[in-house]
Amino acid sequence: MPTDPIPKIRIRGLRKRFGDKQVLDGVDLDVMPGTSMVVIGGSGTGKSVLLKSILGLVEPDEGTIEIDGRNILTMSRHERETLNRQIGMLFQAGALFDSIPVWENVAFGLLAQQKMSRDDARKRAGEVLSQVGLAASVGDLSPAELSGGMQKRVGLARAIAAQPSILFFDEPTTGLDPIMGAVIDGLIVDCVKRLGSTAVAITHDMASAVRIGDRAAMLHRGKIVWTGPAADLLQSGNEVVDQFTHGRRDGPIQMELRK
C-alpha cells in the first residue's frame, strides 16, 4: 500500500443540493496515490455528481476537495484548467463527439493542448486504440457506427490518450453484457497499471467493483457510509453495503426508496 501519506484525492464535508434535494450531504473520501477506489451506491444517489464536482463541472455548495494537498475549489480558472489536464474521464454513456471521426475523438485532448500536429495525433490515436483492443482502422469510423462495447473502448482510449495521472470511470460496464463488461474491466485495470494512475470508478456492478478496485466506498443518503478493501465488499459487516451487494429487497435502503 501507499508509502506517501498525502492522499492523491482528499474530500471533506462535500455538500451539494439541487433544488430541495440534498444530493451530497457531507462526503468524506480519501484516495491514495496509485490506488483504485470504487464508489458504489444506488441509482440517483449522487455518484456522478461526486465525480463532476472533482472535475469542476458541478460547483459544490460546501466542503473541500484536495488534489495533491491543494484545494481545487479555491484555485484560479487557469490553475484549474492546468490541473484538469492530469485527469482523464470515461463518461457514463461514452459522451463521444459524434460530429468527428473516432481517431479525432481519441486525440482530442492532445490536439487541444496543441502538443502535436494532426498527422502525429492521428498516429498516436491509432496506438492508443490498439491499447484498448481496437484496430487503428476503427479511427476512420464515426462514433455512431460503433457498438456499445466499442464506444466504451473509444471513450477509454480518449480518457487515457494524454496519459493522465488521475482517471475517473463512471459506470464503465453499465449496459454491456457480462463478458464485454469483464473485458472492459480488464482494459481499465491494464491502463491504470500502465500509467501508474490513481483511479476512481463508479459502479453498481459487484463483479466489476471487485475486479477494478483496491478499495471501495459506499455512498448512501449523501454520505460515505463504509470504506474498506474492495475484496471485503461481500462480507463488509455493514448493513447498507450488505443489502446493496447482495441485492436484498429488505433493509435500510428500501426505507429510503419508500419515502
Binding site: 463532476k52 472535475l55 469542476g56 463541472l57 484548467e81 484538469n84 489536464r85 485527469i87 482523464g88 474521464m89 463518461f91 457514463q92 454513456a93 459522451a95 463521444l96 463527439f97 459524434d98 482530442f108 485532448g109 487541444a112 493542448q113 480518449r158 494524454a162
Partner: peptide, 15 residues
C-alpha cells in the same frame, strides 16, 4: 451534446 455529456467531456479535454 449537453444531455449526452459531450459538453462536459470537452471541459475534461482541455477545451
Amino acid at each position: 451534446m449537453r444531455v449526452t455529456d459531450q459538453i462536459d467531456a470537452l471541459g475534461t479535454l482541455s477545451t
